[in-house]
Amino acid sequence: MVIGEGKPLQDVLAMVSQNKKIIVAGCRGCVTVCCAGGEKEVGVLSAALNLARQKDDNPIEIHEVTLERQCDTEYLEQVRSFIDEYEAVVSIACGAGVQFMAEMYRKIPIYPGINTNFIGVTEQQGVWAERCQACGNCKLHFTGGICPVTRCAKRLMNGPCGGSTQGKCEVDPETTCGWQLIYDVLKEQGRLDKLEHIIPVSDWSTSRDGGPRRIVREDLKL
């Protein structure tokens, strides 16, 4: 899922400093699961904004709403009936949700209330970690199911750099060296021979380097 985390309150306060009447809009998708932008976080952010503004004798009216998803137009439609009554929206969906809302409602500013960090997993409750960079050219079959693009700080394709020490990455001793993981799993599976051949130069045109990406499925289009 897409993992995000709340922006510092001061940043959000600065965005809405000129507004008296706003919507705080959550999303029941990924950001609910990673506790960054669901119904609960809508409540907490709204309460915090309210407190801060009350303290400054500058109260703000907040309409709390949480949409099924902000990355689909049919759910974004759900705010159409009341959005015109407000001066701005703080969306705490992922960056895609914020943008899609901004695309649909152009009359008022749509502000991001969270930072969108990565595509990842829940390693344990309260701990999320990155697993995919969406490079558009999956090579996991070569690398024992561990992604070198994501898990190596240098996205090296042909084995660990000279900074891999006792299984840890040179960039952060808390981070496991992705290539050590690849090595370990291939060793366990008796497939170390996979590491003998050179993974060729990558084609990054499928990644962000090729410009904004789009997938069209004619069989599904209406």
């Binding site: 660990p160 299984g167 090595y183």
Partner: peptide, 8 residues
């Protein structure tokens, strides 16, 4: 020669 994994 001093980085890990040594065998690799």
């Amino acid at each position: 020669p001093f980085a890990d994994p040594f065998e690799f």
